[in-house]
Design a binder for these strands. Structure first.
Length: 382
RNA sequence: GGGCAGGCGCCAAAGUAGGAGAGUUGGGGCGGACUGUAAAUCCGUUGGCUAAGCCUUAGGGGGUUCGAUUCCCUCCCUGCCCA
């Protein structure tokens, strides 16, 4: 993997770059659609490429390991072939499941024990195991096993947790170095900086991980309920500790405005379930603001969802039709909504790159946030 | 024409051997939430009003009773069966 910087906005810390992998180039800043179970829910590979313009997608170690299981993935020729996706894939390690499935797991010194949410069976994840699974999956970018801390998080717990993540990082690195790719292309490993909302811990975590010279650095443990301003502050603080020549990935973020603010603070990569999940829940992002397409107000609205959007959905269907699909619980609604929301996110980062290269990112960002973060329905109500 | 079973909120049903009550469940309607996906999920709301209360309400009308959605009479309607 190669990462080169291609542009830098004069104000702020926003920058553009290019990640070259064996499955192609990723332009940064980039948003990565989430495909937890080896599918970006409700859309096809063709949608992802042609209608959305996805350059890389995310998948998940924990979920794929439980189902369909590694044997199926390996026999299928690795995840790329299995799911018919020939562009880069990043896999999360299961660190987020330590957070989101906290009722079903037990932290151990060397790893974490999960009870499967599918059948209750027990599974033990260690850094080494998680690296091996990601070898079997064949992701282009693998993530270290970490612990994603919740919010709020007591300082003492954050100290212990961050130490654990740092200790595990070494084991992740060793397992990575002593194993090899299975499918004939290179794989890379990103470290994850933790430390909750505590700057001293973030600094410590970053410095410890830098010694291990990962291919890129993620900022984890944010967007778990803390105020956005706190998140921005920690992001701003932490990116200063990541060398300029390494990609910076803010895990799990976020709303469009969160992404723009983080780009402004020097982040290159993002992922979030929001565009996909919210699409399936009738919550659509548009250039004019949030459209909750199930609302009765759209019953007779035959205009396109977003007149400024060039996606398949906006080119061909009206708000009234989309609303009808959602109200009638028709599957097509999920697909059309997902195509649009993901296209909106990808357009957002594409436009960000353009503005950074023009040097006008900051002003544009502020203007756009004002436009897109309002709720269209609520506004028109007044 | 006769017999039987029923009619409860926008809809479909539950329940009540008379007594907690605008009142159970599901659906529908309306609104909201969702941030490294246990999510095509979840939550709220859904008679009226001069709103910590009051009023109206269980097919219509009448009756018994301190009290009726529940019992009785009658009419109307629906379904099934028989002519």
């Amino acid at each position: 993997m190669k990462f080169e910087l291609t542009g830098q906005n004069p104000a702020g810390k926003a920058r553009t770059g290019k990640i070259t992998t064996d499955h192609g180039i990723i332009n940064t800043p980039i948003f990565m659609p989430v495909g937890t179970q080896g599918t970006v829910k409700a859309v096809t590979e063709e949608n992802l490429k042609n209608d959305i313009g996805a350059e890389i997608i995310l998948s998940n170690t924990y979920h794929l390991y439980l189902r369909p299981g590694m044997e199926i993935i390996e026999n299928g020729g690795g995840l790329h072939r299995f799911m018919n996706w020939d562009r880069p894939v990043l896999t999360d390690s299961g660190g987020f499941q330590i957070y989101s499935l906290s009722d079903l797991r037990k932290m151990k010194k060397e790893g974490v024990e999960f009870r499967s949410h599918l059948d209750g069976s027990s599974h033990y994840f260690t850094p080494e195991k998680v690296i091996n699974i990601q070898r079997q999956i064949g992701s282009d970018i693998m993530m270290v096993l970490d612990e994603c801390t919740p919010w709020p998080c007591e300082y003492d717990y954050a100290v212990k947790s961050t130490e654990l993540t740092s200790r595990w990082a070494i084991l992740n690195r060793e397992a990575f170095d002593s194993s090899a790719p299975l499918y004939g292309f290179n794989q890379n490993l990103f470290g994850i900086i933790q430390g909750s909302v505590y700057k001293d811990l973030r600094e410590k975590s970053a410095k410890e991980l830098l010694k291990l010279d990962f291919d890129g650095y993620a900022i984890g443990g944010l967007a778990v309920g803390e105020p956005a301003e706190v998140m921005y502050e920690i992001v701003d603080f932490t990116t200063d500790y990541i060398p300029a020549n390494k990609p910076r990935y803010l895990m799990g973020v976020g709303r469009p405005e969160n992404i723009l603010e983080a780009i402004s603070r020097g982040v290159d990569m993002f992922d979030c379930v929001m565009p996909t999940r919210n699409a399936r829940n009738a919550y659509l992002f548009t250039s004019q603001g949030i459209v909750t397409i199930r609302n009765a107000r759209y019953k007779n609205d035959y205009s396109p969802l977003d007149p400024e959007c060039g996606c398949y959905t906006c080119r061909n269907y009206s708000r009234a039709y989309l609303r009808h699909l959602f109200v009638a619980n028709e599957i097509l609604g999920l697909q059309l909504a997902t195509i649009h929301n993901l296209r909106f996110y990808l357009d957002l980062v594409r436009e960000s790159r353009r503005k950074i290269e023009e040097g006008t990112f900051e002003d544009w960002k502020n203007e756009i946030i004002n436009k897109i973060s309002i709720n269209v329905s609520a506004t028109e109500e007044k």
